[in-house]
Design a protein around this nucleic acid. Structure first.
Lengths: 161, 161
DNA sequence: CAAAGAAAGTTTCTGTGTAAACAATTTGCC
DNA sequence: GGCAAATTGTTTACACAGAAACTTTCTTTG
């Protein structure tokens, strides 16, 4: 009895076998996010901006006075990390932290004028139809992808106004 | 003329407004990957296994003798990081590095018997139908999500045998 | 009202991942 | 053949993200 011979070692990307991995959602999510980061950096090269920062400013703008912990929970950012992000944005003068009288453990967040201007100036770059994605998806596919990602995440977000 | 009053600050997750962010693929990809990590850790709690390691072993098993750089390119892992992962797996006795005669800059990778057994033992946990995802997607939705993620990534993988 | 426990952030420590410089080898080209 | 340039992988330095312990404030309860 003879064993099946090994296939020849692949020499180019097109020859590599992935088997079931090519259908693994965990793997595909990672690949997709790597691509997204590449596009993000290509687009926002010079601007002093990190991936998470815009989201933070955006949500504060839409929810003035939100507590820091609720913001962290909403964006799936760990509290320890949120502390650093907020401190940095405060140092930049984009937001203000307020300790409310009612509960002096918590922190309320509001944008400054500069913060609002910053968000407004980059709004279309992030969220506009002509965004930085540069993918090949049709608008219908893009919506469907968003729907499936939400369902996969098992997260509910407030119906958008 | 009066300005529109600010909405009340949200106090619970259901009250937070996200606006267009809830449709941003970059944001949704991040959320989905965080959930995926949570499920991964919940499932592989005790086992000594990191997210990227199984994929590396799996691809070497399907492509014996693959060069390290081609493996890195395939999995979108940076060469510097790949060096660490490979060294660790070599120390664990799961794979062997070979410097070929033809090109002594490169490294060829093959699994040991222990490496093959390791992959075989965890294969179904990773790639089986009853995998660790625990999401609410139907099989059709899961396939469609995989298709859209691939298209979003703009990556071609070899047709799976 | 005092003490115990819970809640909200912060700080510290550790690991993972990326980027940039480096060493070794091979290829291309006079 | 020999030097310049490109390729392959490694090392080093650093930024980012997570876990756990800590501080302060609030709530509960005997």
């Amino acid at each position: 009895m003879t064993l099946a011979p090994d296939p020849p070692a692949p020499e180019t990307a097109a020859e590599v076998r992935l088997g079931g991995l090519a259908r693994s959602l965990g793997f595909l999510l990672r690949i997709a996010q790597v691509r997204n980061f590449e596009r993000f950096h290509a687009r926002f090269e010079g601007m002093d901006l990190r991936p998470g920062e815009f989201s933070v400013l955006w949500v504060i703008r839409l929810n003035p006075g939100i507590r820091q912990g609720l913001l962290a929970q909403t964006l799936s950012i760990k509290p320890a990390q949120m502390t650093k992000v907020i401190r940095r944005l405060e140092d930049q003068g984009k937001l203000v932290r307020t300790i409310p009288e009612g509960d002096r453990r918590s922190v309320r967040l509001d944008l400054t004028g500069a913060g609002r201007a910053f968000v407004e100036a980059r709004r279309d770059d992030f969220l506009g139809a002509d965004d930085y994605h540069g993918d090949d998806l049709t608008p219908e596919e893009s919506r469907e992808l968003a729907r499936l990602l939400l369902k996969y995440s098992g997260t509910h977000f407030r119906a958008t106004e």
